[in-house]
Nucleic acid binder design. Structure first.
Length: 435
DNA sequence: CGACTTTGACCCGCGC
DNA sequence: GCGCGGGTCAAAGTCG
């Protein structure tokens, strides 16, 4: 697989069709074409037979946690709709919430939502709850991604949240848990460390404003303890327990170590229980970078490579060795480099919406996340934004990509499928280049 | 020769 | 305390 660094247009002429798009490739492709039209929406018409599953989420949540959430505007939601819908219908894949309110900061803060008089955080839920991931791509927008246990999907919600009061006295240790209505989940839920754990697990960090808090919590939570916490809580909602973020991406690939734009050094390999395929351990080779990733093949499908990023890149993707113009960095390496460096990167190249203005959704621009005055988007946003574009659910449903324990997963991008072809077709339409 | 991979040993947390 | 399992270390080997 050839790789490139942030300048898709310059590298496409060199690029031969990969066996399967790497995470990096996918993200960059999708970001590049994001401003033109929502490609996934066109590629993957939204199924219409799942509305029942989506309906009444607010009621389900309310019933589950015994209080009434603010209204969730899910009227127009179909699976992936807010992410993949054609821009003619919805100009932004991000669902707006209260203006002036930063869902990113909210969700990255340990006291997120807890200052809301409408929400009284319940006790931590059982650890086999589905995960609720929340992210935004700007101050005025937020998207909630929900993976339910039996059916991974992203369910955008429009949550009206109060504007946080300045100086409000908020306990920093609290978290918000948003339990799901699902009740049939078996308690033998696989822990995070189990082979091919599919949970999209992340510990949301607000590195801009709360490093001191994170540091304190880091001291209290060594890696094993943190892992235990993750297992025990299954990360319902977004709880900041450390600076770490863990993202699990799976994709179909012939390569054992698909390129993601960063340089990694393999420091270990282990066969873990429940998976005959060894798990490889990689560290980022960038000096001072502590990001690690685990790569393993699926126990059930060896064609699926599961990559778990653990940590945050605080540097740009390096230029590959021996690279000439082929790997010449794109715009992100120049004027926007500084901005990129102010943000966090989690196992991903610095080519996402915030440092690639071309991909910025116009409505998001109007809300300010990509202006010079806006805080840089954090890596959770970056990741989730990209991941939200992955054509996941239709693929999984059609191919039965459910894994042990029915744990929600990030989904594979099968090579040769309509998914992949669709992406390529969209690239062709947008750039006039056949890939 | 430097970067990277391989691989067995070791460490440590956890459950029993 | 002991065994298990996941994660890490580090020496040796490989590659370009």
């Amino acid at each position: 697989m050839s790789d490139f660094d942030g300048n898709f247009m310059e590298t496409t002429s060199y690029w031969n069709p990969p066996a399967s798009p790497s995470p990096r490739t996918i993200f960059e492709m999708l970001n590049q074409i994001d401003d033109v039209v929502n490609p996934i929406a066109e590629i993957f018409p939204q199924p219409t037979d799942q509305s029942e599953q989506r309906s009444g989420l607010g009621e389900r949540l309310a019933a589950r946690i015994e209080f009434t959430l603010p209204r969730l505007e899910t009227d127009n939601i179909s699976p992936f709709a807010a992410f993949f819908r054609n821009t003619n219908d919805v100009p932004s894949p991000m669902v707006p919430i209260s203006p002036g309110f930063s869902p990113s900061a909210l969700l990255q803060s340990p006291n997120m939502l807890s200052d809301s008089p409408q929400i009284n955080p319940p006790s931590p839920v059982a650890n086999y709850e589905p995960q609720v991931m929340v992210e935004s791509c700007g101050e005025g927008n937020a998207t909630t991604m929900i993976s339910e246990n039996d059916l991974p999907h992203y369910e955008p919600m429009n949550v009206a949240l109060p504007t946080p009061q300045e100086g409000s006295d908020i306990p920093i240790e609290e978290s918000v848990y948003i339990p799901s209505h699902e009740s049939h989940v078996e308690p033998q839920y696989a822990p995070l460390d189990a082979p091919l754990v599919a949970s999209f697990d992340t510990e949301v960090v607000d590195q801009e404003d709360n490093d001191d808090i994170a540091d304190k919590q880091d001291v209290q939570a060594s890696a094993p303890k943190r892992r235990k916490f993750e297992t025990s809580s299954n990360m319902i909602g977004a709880t900041r327990v450390s600076k770490n973020q863990r993202i699990i991406i799976q994709m179909e690939s012939d390569e054992d170590h698909p390129d993601d734009g960063f340089r990694w050094r393999k420091y270990g390999q282990k066969v873990v229980k429940g998976n005959p395929n060894p798990r490889s351990y990689y560290k980022c080779t960038y000096e001072g970078c502590n990001v690690k990733k685990l790569v393993e093949r699926g126990a059930d499908d060896v064609n699926v490579v599961v990559t778990t990023y653990d940590g945050i890149h605080e540097h740009n993707a390096p230029v590959p060795r021996g690279s000439g113009s082929k790997f010449r960095s794109g715009p992100s390496m120049s004027s926007q480099d500084d901005q990129t460096n102010q943000t966090t990167q989690l196992g991903m190249p610095p080519s996402s919406c915030y440092n690639n203005p071309v991909s910025v959704d116009t409505t998001m621009t109007s809300t300010g996340p990509f202006t010079s005055l806006a805080p840089p988007m954090d890596m959770t946003q970056l990741y989730m934004t990209g991941l939200s574009k992955l054509p996941s659910l239709p693929v999984n449903q059609n191919t039965g990509f459910m894994y042990r324990n029915d744990e929600p997963r990030m989904d594979a991008i099968p090579n040769g499928t309509d998914v992949y072809k669709g992406i390529m077709n969209r690239l062709f339409l947008n750039f006039g280049t056949r890939f």
